[in-house]
C-alpha cells in the first residue's frame, strides 16, 4: 500500500487517490484547428516514464487535483504540490 502526500490533507493511503494524467499535457484547441493525429496523440499517447515522472493526481476524499513527482520504478514520492495558482 503506497502512501501519497496530498498538498491539502497530508499523507494518505493510495486508495484515496486517482491518477488523472501526466503533467504538462495541454489540451489542443480549438477543435477546428486540431488534426486527427494531434488529437489522437493527446488522447492516447503517454510517455509512461520509467523513473522520475510528474503526474496529476486527485485526492478523492477532498476532491483536489495536484501535481506529484514520483519514481515509477522505486515508487519513491519526491514531491507533491498544488496546481499552479492554487494555495495549499
Amino acid at each position: 500500500m503506497q502512501r501519497f502526500q496530498c498538498p491539502f490533507c497530508g499523507l494518505r493511503d493510495e486508495t484515496e487517490f486517482h491518477f488523472a494524467t501526466e503533467a504538462g499535457k495541454s489540451r489542443p484547441e480549438p477543435a477546428e484547428e486540431v488534426t486527427d493525429a494531434e488529437w489522437a496523440a493527446y488522447l492516447h499517447l503517454n510517455d509512461a516514464l520509467k523513473g522520475q515522472a510528474r503526474e496529476v493526481w486527485v485526492h478523492l476524499t477532498c476532491g483536489e487535483y495536484f501535481l506529484m513527482t514520483r519514481d515509477t520504478l522505486t515508487r519513491e514520492v519526491s514531491g507533491s504540490e498544488a496546481l499552479p495558482g492554487r494555495a495549499s
Partner: peptide
C-alpha cells in the same frame, strides 16, 4: 460526473468563481 466537473473546474477555469 463530480470528478469530471472538478477536473475542468480546477484545471481549466478559475476555481474561485465556481464551486461544486
Amino acid at each position: 460526473v463530480l470528478l469530471r466537473l472538478e477536473d475542468a473546474r480546477q484545471d481549466r477555469f478559475d476555481p474561485s468563481r465556481v464551486v461544486l
